Amino acid sequence: MFDHTRMTRRYTRGFAAAVVAAVTLILAANAGTARAADPAPEQRTAQSAGEPLSW
């Protein structure tokens, strides 16, 4: 017959592994994708670059 403390340790390790797996999945789901610091970079035009317009 199995020793009682051996079974308790086995269930404790299994429960701890399940908790670690759940926390890892929750943190990974909340991580999301990285966002750019400036979502719309300034577009350089001839006027904003200080160059004269050629007509």
Rank of each mutant, 00 (worst) to 15 (best):
I26F: 10
A22F: 03
G14W: 02
Y11L: 08
A36T: 07
R9H: 10
V20A: 11
S54F: 00
R35I: 02
T5Q: 06
R6A: 06
A37G: 09
R9V: 09
A22C: 12
F2I: 10
L25C: 13
R35G: 04
N30G: 13
G50N: 09
A22K: 04
A22D: 10
M7Y: 05
R9K: 07
G32D: 12
D3P: 02
V23P: 01
I26D: 11
A18S: 08
A31D: 04
A40R: 15
M1L: 00
T12S: 08
V23N: 05
A21M: 02
R6F: 02
W55H: 05
F2G: 13
G14H: 04
A36E: 07
R35F: 02
D3Y: 07
A28N: 08
R13F: 06
A34L: 11
R9S: 08
A17G: 06
T12Q: 06
L53I: 14
A34Q: 12
L25V: 15
N30P: 02
G32L: 07
H4K: 01
T45W: 04
A31G: 11
I26M: 13
L27F: 07
T24Y: 03
A22L: 06
R6G: 01
G32W: 04
L25Y: 13
G14F: 01
W55L: 03
A36G: 13
A22I: 14
H4N: 03
T45V: 15
E51D: 15
R13E: 01
T33I: 15
A21F: 09
A49C: 11
V19R: 00
R35S: 09
L25F: 08
Q47G: 14
D3S: 15
F15M: 08
Q43R: 14
T45K: 03
G50E: 09
E51W: 08
V20G: 05
A46K: 06
Q47K: 12
M7K: 03
S48A: 10
M7N: 11
A46Y: 01
P52H: 01
T12R: 04
F2N: 07
G32S: 15
V20I: 08
A46N: 05
W55I: 08
R44P: 12
A36Q: 09
T45C: 11
T33F: 11
F15Q: 05
N30T: 10
L53C: 09
I26A: 15
L27P: 01
V19M: 00
